[in-house]
Amino acid sequence: MAEWEHRAYARIGLLGNPSDMYGGKTLSFTIGNFWATVHLAPSNDGGPLVIRPHPHHDLVDFASLPQLWL
């Protein structure tokens, strides 16, 4: 299985919002210096999903997936 890594750049909304009077039209810009990265790799034993926060940049830790939504 292949490993995947993807970046999502930060965005600044200048005008509009999907729920405002502009009818869902927006004007926004991406910022090339700020991003979030996700790295997906298959587990060796076919086990459950494991979320490993970055040791320096992710200052919070979740014991389980349901805890993410609390």
Rank of each mutant, 00 (worst) to 15 (best):
M1R: 14
M1T: 11
M1Y: 03
M1E: 11
A2N: 11
A2L: 07
A2G: 15
A2Y: 15
A2S: 08
E3S: 09
E3H: 15
W4M: 12
E5A: 11
E5D: 11
R7N: 07
R7W: 05
A8K: 11
A10W: 01
A10V: 00
R11L: 06
R11N: 13
R11A: 12
R11Q: 12
I12Q: 14
I12Y: 03
G13R: 02
G13S: 10
G13Y: 11
G13H: 06
G13I: 07
L14F: 06
L15C: 02
G16Y: 00
G16C: 01
N17C: 02
N17S: 15
M21V: 13
M21Y: 13
Y22R: 06
Y22Q: 15
Y22G: 05
G23V: 03
G24R: 05
G24C: 01
G24E: 00
K25A: 05
T26N: 03
L27K: 14
L27F: 03
L27C: 06
S28P: 01
T30M: 14
T30E: 06
T30C: 06
I31D: 05
I31R: 04
I31T: 15
I31F: 08
I31Q: 14
G32F: 00
N33Q: 13
N33V: 03
N33G: 11
N33W: 07
F34R: 11
F34H: 08
F34E: 06
W35P: 00
W35H: 14
A36T: 13
T37G: 14
T37N: 11
V38G: 10
V38F: 02
V38C: 07
V38Y: 08
L40W: 04
L40A: 05
L40P: 00
L40C: 06
L40T: 13
L40Y: 07
P42R: 03
P42G: 04
S43R: 14
D45S: 08
D45V: 09
D45E: 15
G46L: 03
G46H: 02
G46K: 08
G47P: 00
P48G: 08
P48Y: 09
L49R: 06
L49H: 08
L49T: 01
V50M: 06
V50I: 12
V50R: 09
V50E: 07
I51M: 05
I51V: 12
P53L: 13
P53Q: 09
P53M: 04
H54I: 09
P55Y: 01
P55V: 01
P55I: 01
P55H: 02
H56N: 14
H56P: 09
H57L: 11
H57I: 15
H57V: 13
D58W: 09
L59M: 10
L59W: 09
V60F: 13
V60W: 12
D61V: 15
F62S: 00
A63R: 04
A63T: 15
S64Y: 01
L65D: 10
P66N: 05
P66L: 00
P66W: 01
P66K: 01
P66I: 00
Q67N: 12
L68D: 03
W69R: 13
L70I: 05
L70K: 14
